[in-house]
């Protein structure tokens, strides 16, 4: 027997706002989050814009948590903490709560290497690797390596919130956020945990991500020529999942969304080839994209008519390298 999993709470943060109310209002007002890049001189990239999260708190270099969490981990913690609290997960045994995170590309904090590199220059100002290896590297902060490990921020958040159940970190294709929700819902449904937070966080907006935006070879320009097809964004979302009977609503705003939140989650992941198969099965319908295929499969798997779908969100890895697409469907209750 299928045990329906409900969304007990959610939290999000993006360039439109630092909480759900701000984001909802901005969306209702038709605001755009896209603006000039901040934090570094991006003029050399031309008229580059981005949808950046920006608060003083996120860039406080004296905050010890930044060293462990990184900027992306810090905003991830904000939403996980809010979803956790709104769903009353602190009422459950710590080992019965899971944490599942899809995490975008994590860059080594190369700026932390500067003092060591400065001490390693030769007479011409070039980097002398022998000097670097033989001692200058000791100027690097001992916690710098944490910036290369995707899972450290998630481990720190589990520590801060005392979440001791399943802890899974997925990276870094565009579908990993949806997959995190899928795995969390499965764990709740199967009783591996009583509740779970599933979250996704994007990569940082930084010079490295701008450089990546422009990558490509002949015939493969995943971000469009010169990266023109992509506006960089950093954002984070988290949902708290519990068995449907255990989902709770909190406050007036939650009541407003109660019907959608109380629906069962149906998920499926589909790749480009799977989209092809669906298209083949529907000769004459035309090509389906992976996102459409994932949606169709999710509906079919849970026998949902289109009118029963309360909410649909889809992710698709457009890089040409990633695994495809995933769709999250929230059923509208009868």
């Amino acid at each position: 027997m299928t045990r329906p999993v409900g969304i007990a709470a959610y939290a999000s943060r993006c360039a439109l706002g630092n909480d759900d109310q701000q984001i909802d209002q901005a969306l209702a007002d038709g605001e755009s989050a896209i603006g000039p890049l901040r934090g570094f001189d991006a003029s050399a990239f031309g008229d580059t814009v981005a949808a950046q999260i920006w608060t003083e708190e996120d860039v406080d270099e004296d905050d010890p948590a930044i060293r462990i969490l990184g900027p992306h981990g810090r905003i991830l913690e904000h939403v996980v903490r809010r979803a956790y609290a709104a769903a009353d997960l602190d009422q459950l045994p710590a080992e019965r709560v899971g944490l599942y995170v899809g995490m975008g590309m994590v860059d080594a904090a190369v700026e932390d290497l500067v003092p060591a590199v400065a001490a390693s220059r030769d007479a011409d100002g070039e980097l002398d690797l022998a000097k670097f290896f033989k001692g200058a590297y000791r100027l690097i902060h001992p916690l710098w390596p944490l910036s290369m490990l995707n899972n450290v921020a998630v481990g720190q958040i589990a520590t801060d919130l005392d979440i001791r159940g399943d802890n899974l970190v997925l990276a870094s294709d565009a579908v990993c956020g949806v997959r995190a929700i899928l795995e969390a819902a499965r764990a709740v449904r199967e009783g591996i945990v009583d509740a779970a937070i599933a979250a996704g966080v994007s990569e940082r907006v930084c010079p490295a991500s701008l450089a990546r935006r422009r990558v490509g070879v002949e015939g493969v320009q995943p971000m469009g020529e010169g990266g023109a097809a992509l506006v960089l964004t950093n954002a984070v979302d988290g949902v708290a999942l519990r068995l449907l009977g255990g989902a709770t609503a909190h406050g007036p705003r939650d009541q407003r969304f109660a019907s959608e939140r109380a629906g069962e989650i149906a998920l499926h992941q589909a790749g480009r080839s799977e989209a092809r198969r669906l298209t083949d099965a529907r000769t004459g319908v035309g090509d389906l994209g992976p996102g459409q295929a994932a949606f169709a499969l999710a509906r079919a798997a849970h026998d949902l008519a289109a009118g029963e779908v309360g909410l649909l969100t889809m992710d698709y890895d457009g890089s040409g390298m990633g695994p495809g697409a995933g769709a999250l469907v929230v059923e509208r209750p009868a």
């Binding site: 490990l149 995707n150 899972n151 970190v169 997925l170 870094s172 294709d173 990993c176 790749g271």
Partner: peptide, 10 residues
């Protein structure tokens, strides 16, 4: 062609 995922837990 089924599900694909990378797990990054050190």
């Amino acid at each position: 062609r089924g599900p694909v995922a990378a797990i990054v837990s050190a």
